[in-house]
Amino acid sequence: MKVLLDTCVWGGVRTELATAGYDVVWTGDWSEDPGDEEILATAYSEGRILVTLDKDFGELAIVRGTSHCGILRLVNLSARQQATVCLRVLELYGNELTSGAIVTAELGRVRIRPPDEA
């Protein structure tokens, strides 16, 4: 599974996901931040699930109808918790995400917005 981590996601998540076998790119490695629209467009063109802390991506997808390959938003998690929750959500809800769902995850709670509602 291919994943694009937004800059706001702890860089250690990249290591954890790569160790688990995911194909991971972290925007924190890019020379500059191209902005949310370009990040989402890159994730879409490369067939990557976008993982972020930023609710603006959901707004781009829902309000503006911007195409995407799934968005996972992590909420109220410490840096270390981000990796654990991200791995668990990708394991449990990877199919929904790759189908274009928007998943919001926090400790003990996951909300899924199916693609037909996005």
Rank of each mutant, 00 (worst) to 15 (best):
E59A: 13
Y22C: 05
S45D: 09
E96R: 08
E16L: 11
A18V: 10
R48C: 00
H68K: 05
T84F: 12
C86K: 07
L17E: 01
A20R: 06
V25E: 11
G21P: 02
L74P: 02
L74W: 00
V89Y: 04
K55H: 14
D33L: 06
E46M: 08
G58I: 04
L17I: 03
G65H: 05
V63C: 13
T19Y: 12
L74R: 04
I102D: 05
T66P: 13
G12Y: 03
G65D: 04
L17S: 00
S31V: 13
E38K: 11
E96Q: 14
L92K: 11
V25S: 13
D56P: 09
C86T: 14
R80D: 15
V24S: 01
I102Y: 05
I39F: 01
S31M: 14
T15D: 12
L53R: 10
L53K: 09
D33N: 10
E96D: 12
T19L: 15
L17A: 02
G35M: 02
T15S: 13
W26Y: 04
K55M: 15
D23V: 04
R14V: 09
I39Y: 00
R14K: 11
Q82N: 07
I71V: 07
A18I: 10
E32I: 12
G12S: 02
F57H: 02
R88D: 14
R64Y: 14
G94L: 02
L90Y: 06
E37P: 10
S78W: 10
C69F: 07
K55F: 15
L72V: 00
L97A: 04
G12R: 03
T27G: 05
W10M: 05
D54V: 02
L74S: 02
I49N: 03
E32S: 13
L53H: 09
T27M: 09
G11C: 10
S67Y: 15
A18L: 12
N95W: 15
I49E: 01
